[in-house]
Design a protein around this nucleic acid. Structure first.
Lengths: 346, 346
DNA sequence: GTTAGCACTCGCGTCGACTGAGTGCTAACA
DNA sequence: TGTTAGCACTCAGTCGACGCGAGTGCTAAC
């Protein structure tokens, strides 16, 4: 038995209806509500039976309507990707408005992006920024705070600051700290955060005159280096959106889901593993996360300087409005890529 | 009719039981499960009837057990405050462990505090930091980023940074920017963020040699001044904890609640209005927030330099474990006050 | 003042009947 | 050979009847 044009149209009708209503779709519904060539419900029934045999439909129990399988969704999303997803201009204007404060700080940027996408799609959205240790140093500043302490400020190309207090010798002047800052900036510029520590260690001996500061600095950088192992900015928007779907009307399920969002740990692995291509679709157990068995997730990684520093992920019920989500994602990845490009050109 | 010792003991027994089980408490339960002088259920019944007349108990419907009223909870909490709330040493050690990374950044500090309290109590927790415009300037730094842009970094006593990009004249050297930073720091030190802009405006004319930088700076400070109107750091922990209580098993209710948490707007007003005394208890509609009709909230403001820069709020069902919550709050306000004191002594 | 006893109330869980949406199969039709 | 009408069958969900049990208020006796 082969898949043909008519079967495909029936399948898509079922998927569309199920996405809308979340109730198993019967043959009569397909025949009456959707334009599939004026076929009778009986014919549809035969076709549906075939589609089930082909693995595109599931039947929750005898004598109930059919429900699309993961395989069906995958086919559906694939076909959506062929027609380039495009956001209606009204909506993209609305999204732009939500973002227009033209944030310079990475933190705010991805936070806003997450909320904007969550609002536009009605689903939960996760956005990650570039890995800390991949960011390139732009400038180091040591700012005196009291007689014996100073603040270490690290500015990177992603416009993030890392800040830590370090100890200085009593009597170190602002000018001296400034000179050190200058020198360090010169020496370390364009290195990644991951590389700085090693380089700094090599420099140590040549700077005996500011031993105390350097020691403290090395210490702080070591800490930053360790902390940044797989750290990156991560923002969640619309976490509670999941609650509006009947799939998550069970309070316990909802709770494990929301806990997962709050813990961030699993989320991080979820957003970094297995990103093949621009869009990645994961359905149910494929996410590998407990509490997401009834979810699907579409991720899309944005680009900056030819790299893929981070991604946007939309998490919703398996019967997600894929078409809409894809167009929002398409818009937002473009937006983020541009925003990051601009800030790196700064 | 008067309130007497026996009535009080019965009332407390009812409150304790209701907090534990969330089911209306009957006379038999009180008589059997709690030690109230070996009275029979009939006697308890009479007393309960009196307590209802006095407004301390409600009856959801005829022939069901009694439920404590807001008035009862208030009395209960008051009595708890008389015996100084004290955390068992095991628990305080656990809490301390959760916090021990001795964070220097306000953001991380209150974030950790919120999560720690949420975990310790099992309820949703909100922590606010000092209002931005009340923070006192410690140092201003202008850091060159490219030929024509620089980063404005403002270090305050709460160890927060505000950062914005400003434009500079082409050819401005790092040394010049450093000199300006130094001068500004000298001039503006110890002013609040709210005052800086006005002072800066007064200084403008005397600095014609760096007109471009000053102009841009004034601009940026104006923006910060406006943005900081009633902004402050705010962190939420354990948002999903509310879902475990039967009071919020309704998905819709839960959703409005979680939305409220995410929007932060109402939360901010909630945390700043009407803080009288150290602990404030608000029950149900008193919070003035939609979606919190079935909640109670206990807030406790911490101190720093004789001021009350921020507060911790625990939000749970009306039948909250007040005793435990109070002791956790007592611990944490002390902790926060100390942590902020230390960072200001820095 | 306390308690045993009793009639009464009412939420809640169980059970069975019924309904209706949906199916698969068969036979007739174009 | 593909399509359709018809029919028997299935099964989840709804609705009402019913009984249980926890709880009450009241009264009379201790």
């Amino acid at each position: 038995m082969e898949m043909d044009e008519r079967k495909l149209r029936i399948l898509y009708a079922i998927i569309d209806d199920y996405i809308l209503t979340a109730i198993p779709v019967g043959s009569r519904t397909v025949s009456k509500k959707y334009n599939v060539g004026g076929l009778s419900s009986a014919t549809i029934r035969n076709e549906m039976s075939d589609l089930e045999a082909l693995g595109y439909l599931d039947q929750p129990h005898t004598s109930s309507g059919r429900v699309p399988s993961a395989k069906a969704y995958r086919l559906y999303v694939e076909s959506l990707l062929n027609v380039a997803p495009k956001l209606p201009p009204g909506e993209s204007a609305k999204l732009r408005g939500r973002l227009s404060a033209r944030e310079r700080q990475l933190h705010d940027l991805i936070e806003r992006a997450a909320h904007a996408v969550a609002e536009a799609t009605g689903y939960t959205t996760v956005v990650t920024g570039p890995a800390t240790r991949e960011q390139r140093l732009r400038s180091i500043q040591i700012v005196p705070v009291s007689d014996r302490t100073a603040l270490l400020i690290i500015v990177t190309d992603a416009a993030v600051f890392k800040d830590t207090t370090i100890r200085t010798d009593e009597g170190t002047t602002a000018e001296q700290l400034f000179a050190i800052s200058r020198m360090l900036t010169d020496q370390l510029q364009d290195l990644t955060v991951g590389e700085i520590w090693a380089r700094l260690k090599g420099m140590q001996s040549s700077l005996h005159e500011h031993a105390r500061v350097m020691h403290s600095l090395l210490d702080a950088m070591g800490r930053i280096e360790r902390d940044s192992a797989d750290s990156r900015e991560i923002a969640v928007g619309g976490g509670s959106n999941i609650l509006q779907f009947p799939e998550y009307s069970d309070a316990n399920k909802a709770r494990t889901f929301l806990n997962m969002l709050e813990a961030r740990e699993e989320l991080r692995t979820l957003m970094t593993t297995d990103m093949v291509g621009v869009f990645t679709l994961r359905i149910g157990a494929e996410t590998g996360i407990q509490g997401m068995e009834d979810c699907a997730m579409i991720t899309s990684s944005y680009t900056a300087a030819g790299e893929h520093p981070g991604a946007i992920g939309v998490i919703g019920p398996v019967r997600m409005r894929y078409g809409h989500v894809l167009s929002v994602l398409e818009f937002m990845t473009r937006y983020l890529s541009e925003a990051l490009f601009m800030s790196s050109e700064l």
